[in-house]
Structures are given as C-alpha cells and as structure tokens.
Design a protein around this nucleic acid. Structure first.
Length: 638
RNA sequence: GCCUCUGUAACUCAGCCUGGUAGAGUGUUUGCAUGGUAAGCAAAAAGUCGGGGGUUCAAAUCCCCUCGGAGGCUCCA
C-alpha cells in the first residue's frame, strides 16, 4: 500500500466520468462530490498482497499525522498512480472500504472517501508547514504488529476474495453493444466465444486472449534476439536511437531476398512501384487531417524554420502522387507500391523490442484505388489470397482476425464466409457498431509466438475516408469526377517482422531439440565446401566456381582447423548443404553432402548438388551474399 | 513516459551482499597438430568494470545523478 498525505486548508472533489467498467453507477448524492475544510487528504493505492496488517500500519501513520497537524476532517482518496503493483479493482474496493472503516474508528469519525473507479476533478490548497506533505509505502513483509500501537482490539477483516465479481449483468450487456468478438468456422457459422470449443485451436485461443489482454506475457527476452546476434544477422546500434538496427552482411542478405520477393510479387500483381520522400510538412492541409486520424508518434526533422515529420507509412507519399495523377475508370484498379526503407514510428521507449517492434522498419506498402465497392471487395479478396500464399510459402503459421463494422458484415456475409472457407480453419471476428478509424473492414494475420504474444503480419484495409481527405478522384464513364474506394495493403506487414517470425520459429525448434534452419532460398550460405585436407584444395575451388556460376550461394572453408570443428561451425550456421571432399570423393568426382533438412548424407556430383539446390529454391528470388567465399577472409560481426 | 531488472575483455558471463593488485569460457593472433562428419594441444595480446559526482586511507564493490539495453505497465481508483 502506498499513501500520500496532504494537510490542506480545503479540499474539494467532484466525480466526472466512470473510468472502470466494473464499478456501479453513483447515487445522485455521490455525484455532487464534496468539500472539506482543514482536512488531511490521503491519496491511497492498494497493492497486491495488502492485508489487514498493512491497513493498520497505514492507519497508524495517518493517525499520527492527523493528530499532529490538528486537522478536523479526513478524506480518503483512492489514487492508482502511486503504485505499479496495483491490486485488482475488486480487491482494492474491499480494501478501501475497510480502510475507511478503520479511519472512522481510529482517526476521525467523520472520515469520508471519494468514489473508486471514476475520473474526478479535485482542487486543494496545501498548507506550507513541514508536516503538510508526507508519503509512505507499506508492505505486508515489513509489518510488525501494529494493533498494539493503535491500542485497538483485533479487528476481523471481511474476507477479500481474489477476482471477486463486481460486474453487473446490465453493464456487461452495455459493453457488448459497442465492440465484440465472435468466431467463424469454415462452414460459415458464427459462434459466441463462450460457446466455442477452442480445444483444437489453441493458437486461436492464445490470440484471442492476447487481444483481450487477459494473458500476461513472460518477462523473458524473446528467442529471436539471441539468434539474430548468433547468426550474425542483426545487431543493436547504441549510436542511434533505440529501435534503429544495424544489419550485418548475412542479415542484409536475408532482408534483401525478402525485399526482392515481395517487390516481385507486387509488380507481378500489377502494382506500379514508386519512391516517395521520407519526410513531410506538418502544415500540409491534407496531412494535418490525416495525422489527427492516425496519431502515431513521429520523429521530427528541422529544415530552416520548418518542421517535418518522418513518415510512418507510405500512405501520404502515394496519396499525394495519386492526387496529381490523371486516370479514369479504365485504369482502375490502380495500384501504387513502395518498399519503405524506412517507415518511422517513435514508439515509447518501453515498447521497442528486438525485430518485433521498431522505431525504423521496412514496410512494403501498397495502396489500391478502386472504382466502387464491388471492385474494392474483389481486390480485398485477391490480396487476401496473396497474403495466405505469402505466409504459407515462408512456412509462417498465422491466426486470422477480421474487423468489420456490423452493418457492412451483415450486408456482405457471403464475402467473409468465402474467405474463411478458403483457409479452412476458424477465425476471429471483431464487430463494431460505430466506425472508430478510417476503415470499414480489415483483416490481419497474426503470428502467435511461444510466449503467448500475437504479432500482426499481413493486413489489408478498406478505407472509406482518405479519398476525401486527399482529394483523390478518377474520371468515370460519364466523363465526371468520381471518388474511388481505397485499399491499404501490406502483404508481409514488415520485413523485420518476417525475420522475427522465422527466427522465433527456429527458437521453438531448438527448444524441441530439432535442427533450426532458414528456408534454403534465405540461407546466407546454401552450400559449404569443406576439404578434408590441403590435397582437395583445387577440387573445392573448382566446385566453388561451378556452383557460384549456377547461382548457388556457396562458400569454402579453407581454414586449417580440424575437420570436426569446421563441420561443427557449418552446423551452427544452419548451412543447408555441407559438402565434404576427401581422397575418396576426389577419386569418384563427387562430394559427401550432409542435407540439413533430412539429416541424411548423400554422395553427389556437383551437377546433382546444383539440381538439388535449384529444386529447393524453385521460383524464389536470388541475391548474392556480400562476404568473401573463403572463410579465412571473413571478419566476424558478432 | 512510469516501474523492475541489467551494463565488467570483441562476445557470453563470474566477481559486488561482506571495499584491499581485474577473472573464466568463447573469439582473435602465434606455434605445434593434417584431421572422415558438432569443439585437437599450447602460448600471447586484449579491460577509462557504461559515464559523472560523493563517502573512504582505499570503490567494479557502498551512496547520489546520468546514459544505454531487456521485460512489464500505459481502457486502471
């Protein structure tokens, strides 16, 4: 328990608005508030583990002060902000009531309290004498018996039951009319959450719990943070702001391949790739309006006497281009795409985390202008399919949430049923009656990690607001100006989050004692050549140039360490194909290749090995690794 | 932003409670070892103990301030 006591000439308060859903309405009398003269106000925070002994200790402190300053009135003011370890409201209310009872008995028989769970305005004039301001922190561990100090008899406290239900049924009902969750199964049936059997869908349950903030995450560092360092992919940069990372050659390779993959996908889908500035004028009228609707925290950059904010998405860059472009219904849907390196969001310091939440991140952002709602729905559906394929292709499991305005859902039920049927497992629906943002509907694919946290990856939204804000128009078939419907889409969410999910999945494998590895097309080294001794040098160098010529990322361990230690290092680097050559292999014209995915060893010729790698990376982009192929020439970056 | 934990060699960490000459493993360099599928042997180099102030004869260690990192909180009286 924490208390702050102020001795005041007067103190007055008035309840304004309910802050906690679980507290009852106030009576007319309580709503008026109160004013006390020559009073001690006791701001009180009730904490986890507080009990009668704690309350008595606090009363003792209050009484001592109250008598000393010769106050006449006492106000107990529940005040959460003194503690970071608050008792749940249900317990705190009982503790507060008992605290008041003790205060009446021992300190001031006319003591009153202000209501719990309401925002209140208050006004006070604190006296200036040395005892006018006192604060105290009391915990059950530190208490000696204080009943004697008070000269009080033992008082029995009413049992405080953890989690005691204080919510009335009518209040629950009221909540539901605003925003509520349902589950849709692939057969198109909507289920109430309390009736849905989650037993075969534990990740969906975890996701829902996370959405509902019922689950507390473990307080451990996520697995990917260690892995990104160990694999020489990404490091923290103390010389920059938090959440701005450094990417080493191997990490840059992984990121570059993913960037190429999404860019190719978008261009093949019909997007026009553009590049827009990273900073924008705060005073631009359209941007001003948009900023109010999307109150992300921004970095600010000064130029002369003007302030610019660093973009937090590609939206405005593309909207401003679309505003100035000329197009008619014949060119719709019109898709603009940019791989933002970077988008900036000045997340609060305590919120930045590894690759999961950053202040500078790479978002492949596409916006689609559609002729009407029919076309918008078609695009929404197509982009939904792209997202499903994208995540399946990378082997990233996900849970789906659709968020929809109620009316729109009821008018378009078929539309959603079709999409849920496509992925063939239950998904979460959040329905809301009043539109709280610029979108009328959206979906998100969420990655659920081993700590019970959900992270949004893919998302597409139908925006019914920003065509007005940014004055985007097309010419319709009558030659008249018309408003398009706008879609926002990020198929991967953010490149960093893809890496985050892939690494977290490897962390889970390691925990299960399985061999971790990245998909071959993302592995910085796809084939590692290891000679048993110097005599196979020429043979390996020949293989190196042959594999390299065929677009395989290959390197050569030319160091003089023992065979075992070189094999071990290839294993710890998750190399998918480790090709060893000794006397025998040289004679046969082959390599003894360890295949990581199967754990098997096979004798393969270079031609066969190339074929194998090509097979595993079919239809995937390729980029070169910017490190010397000779391991003896490589610097270490971790 | 608030709270808790944390900062010691390039990396991972011990030492701090109870003040008294700065430690280990890994990596790096050098020498030996030429090895058949997850760590060969030996030696060396390497540290303003995050930064600043204080207490003390003496501070990595105790106290205060400050800066970085991790986690939690930020619909909460």
């Amino acid at each position: 328990m924490r208390i702050l006591q102020l001795h005041c000439d007067y103190v007055a308060y008035k309840p304004k608005q309910r802050a906690l859903k679980s507290v009852p309405e106030l009576s007319e009398e309580e709503k008026k508030g109160s004013k006390l003269e020559n009073a001690v106000i006791v701001f009180s925070s009730f904490e986890v583990g507080d009990n009668e002994a704690v309350l008595l200790e606090a009363i003792h402190a209050v009484k001592k002060n109250f008598d000393e300053v010769k106050a006449e009135n006492l106000l107990v003011y529940p005040y959460a902000h003194l503690s970071n370890n608050l008792a749940p409201p249900s317990e705190a209310i009982l503790l507060l009531n008992h605290f008041l009872k003790l205060a009446k008995e021992h300190v001031c028989k006319d003591a009153i309290k202000s209501p719990f769970g309401y925002y209140k305005e208050f006004e006070l004039k604190c006296k200036g004498h040395p005892l006018a301001e006192l604060s105290k922190s009391i915990s059950s561990q530190k208490i000696e018996s204080t009943a004697e100090k008070l000269g009080a008899e033992k008082i029995i406290v009413e049992a405080v039951k953890p989690g005691q239900e204080l919510v009335s049924d009518s209040l629950k009902q009221e909540d539901k009319t605003k925003r509520y969750f349902k589950v849709m199964t692939p057969d198109g049936v909507m289920h109430d959450l309390d009736k849905f059997d989650f037993s075969e869908h534990s990740n969906l349950k975890t996701f829902y719990d996370y959405e509902n903030k019922k689950v507390r995450a473990y307080s451990s560092e996520p697995a990917h943070m260690k892995l990104m360092r160990e694999q020489e992919l990404v490091g923290l940069e103390a010389g920059s702001d938090g959440g701005n990372l450094r990417w080493y050659p191997k990490g840059r390779l992984v990121k570059k391949v993913l960037e190429k993959k999404i860019t190719d996908l978008m261009v093949d889908y019909g997007a026009n790739e553009i590049e827009s500035p990273i900073m924008y004028d705060f005073e631009h009228p359209a941007l001003k309006k948009y900023l109010n609707r999307f109150p992300a925290r921004q970095y600010i950059v000064q130029s002369d006497d003007k302030n610019f904010f660093l973009r937090f998405a590609a939206c405005f860059g593309q909207f401003l281009i679309a505003h100035d472009a000329s197009f008619s219904y014949k060119q719709l849907p019109l898709r603009l795409f940019e791989l933002t390196r970077y988008s900036f969001r000045r997340e609060q310091s305590g919120e930045v985390s590894g690759l999961r939440r950053l202040r500078a991140f790479t978002m492949p952002d596409m916006h689609t202008l559609c002729e009407d709602l029919t076309q918008a729905k078609q695009e929404f559906f197509n982009q939904y399919l792209l997202c499903v394929d994208w995540n399946n292709d990378l082997g990233i499991p996900f849970e789906t949430a659709f968020r929809v305005q109620e009316d729109f859902f009821n008018e378009n039920k078929e539309f959603y049923t079709k999409m849920v049927a496509h992925i063939g497992r239950p998904v979460l629906f959040e329905l809301f009656d009043l539109r709280y943002a610029y979108f009328i509907t959206k979906f998100e694919f969420n990655f659920v990690d081993q700590y019970g946290k959900a992270t949004s990856l893919s998302t597409v939204q139908i925006d019914v607001e920003n065509c007005d804000t940014f004055d985007l128009n097309y010419t319709n078939s009558n030659g008249k100006k018309a408003k398009p419907i706008l879609l926002h889409a990020s198929i991967p969410g953010a490149i960093e989050r893809v890496v985050f999910a892939l690494l977290e999945l490897q962390g889970e494998k390691i925990a299960l004692k399985q061999k971790p590895m990245l998909p071959t097309f993302l592995s910085p080294t796809q084939v590692r050549l290891i000679p048993i001794n110097e005599k196979q040098r020429d043979y390996c160098e020949q293989a190196l140039s042959e594999l390299s010529k065929h677009g395989v990322r290959v390197d050569y361990d030319d160091r003089t360490d023992t065979l075992q230690s070189r094999i071990r290092e290839a294993e710890t680097e998750w190399v998918p194909f480790v090709a060893v050559a000794g006397e025998k292999e040289l004679m046969e014209g082959k390599f003894n290749v360890s295949i990581r995915s199967s754990g098997r060893q096979e004798k393969l010729s270079i031609k066969e090995l190339i074929e194998l790698v090509k097979n595993e990376t079919l239809n995937q982009p390729f980029e070169k690794l910017s490190l010397p192929p000779y391991l003896s020439k490589r610097a270490k970056y971790n």
